[in-house]
């Protein structure tokens, strides 16, 4: 057993002081940390460049003698060809399709979330959840195909082809709702599952049925999380492009009638920039003004939802 002594570290040299370890300057370590910080900071840079790029071009648009701020926000005709730039023509379609999408996805998504979190057996969950995940993973252009070539013909059969055109906001909105459904249901389910079990058990102990426990106790407790889900859903609907670009028509029109065709903000950007658009024209700059509005609206919605979620976490953890 004499070898064991070999395992002892050799004594430090006479000149060694323990404080040397602390003082040792590790340039590599510092450089790496700086580099990683730069990579993290790059994401801020992305946001800043979005604001600068969109803001800069939008400013060019508003400085154009043909356009006025007042006209942009107060009028309802969007006809770049004859110099009319009233954003409400596009906003009306965005609002209509988003509202339809929420009217479809909110009740369905919430019901699905309640079923999955309150009723479903683990076995049923393991079958049902992946289906929602598949729905969430389908590219939006495929949903566009589905809206134009399945839902629209179906609706035209139901409502009459004279009432509903080939392009309409109703079909686009419904399909958008199906697209957002998984998002609403998964966020709501997280919120419902975060409600402490003690509340659930207390409700059952009082003799509540599963339905009463869900609706009168758990749902109110999870309301803020569900609110966050709704807001994120709206933000997704507002920013969605391909479904509306394919299915809701290519004419800007101020209307809230879902049976009509009208172009949303996103679809307008996609259609105009898809063609041969020359730089620095008023058409080109107007797209950046629309995109800036879109960015700001979704940013505010996302911030509100994040704030709600963080507030909600504090409550139970």
């Amino acid at each position: 057993m004499t070898e064991q002594t070999n395992h002892h570290p050799s004594p430090p040299p006479a000149s060694f002081r323990p404080s040397d370890l602390k003082r040792k300057l590790r340039i590599g370590e510092g450089a790496i940390e700086t580099l990683l910080f730069i990579l993290g900071f790059l994401t801020i840079f992305v946001t800043v460049s979005i604001v600068i790029v969109l803001g800069d071009q939008a400013l060019l648009f508003f400085n154009d003698p043909q356009v006025s701020f007042r006209e942009f926000f107060m009028t309802t005709q969007w006809q770049p060809a004859i110099g009319q730039f009233g954003i409400w023509a596009l906003v009306s379609a965005t609002l209509t399709t988003s509202l339809i999408a929420m009217a479809v996805s909110l009740p369905l998504g919430l019901s699905a979330a309640i079923y999955l979190s309150q009723y479903a057996s683990p076995r049923a969950r393991s079958v049902l959840k992946p289906i929602l995940e598949i729905l969430a993973g389908i590219p939006t252009v495929v949903y566009g195909f589905f809206a134009l070539l399945f839902v629209t013909p179906l609706l035209r059969d139901l409502l009459g082809a004279d009432k509903l055109g080939v392009y309409n906001m109703l079909s686009a909105g419904i399909v958008m709702g199906i697209m957002i459904l998984p998002l609403i249901s998964s966020m709501s389910e997280d919120a419902l599952s975060a409600v402490p079990n003690s509340l659930r058990e207390a409700a059952y102990a009082m003799g509540a049925t599963p339905f009463e426990a869900s609706i009168q106790v758990i749902l109110p407790a999870a309301l803020s999380g569900i609110g966050a889900a709704i807001i994120v859903g709206i933000s997704r609907a507002v920013g969605e492009t391909m479904i509306v670009a394919v299915a809701s028509g290519a004419t800007s029109k101020f209307t809230f009638n879902p049976l009509e065709a009208a172009e949303t903000m996103t679809a307008h950007i996609a259609r105009i920039s898809g063609g041969d658009l020359s730089y620095n024209t008023i058409d080109y700059n107007s797209l950046f003004a629309i995109a800036l509005m879109l960015f700001l609206v979704t940013l505010v919605l996302n911030l509100i939802s994040q704030w709600i979620v963080s507030k909600f976490r504090e409550q139970y953890e």
């Binding site: 992305v46 920013g239 879109l294 960015f295």
Partner: peptide, 15 residues
Amino acid sequence: INNLAGVPSIVYGML
């Protein structure tokens, strides 16, 4: 970063 994940893809296109 959480916010960037929610920015509509068309805005990235404009960028």
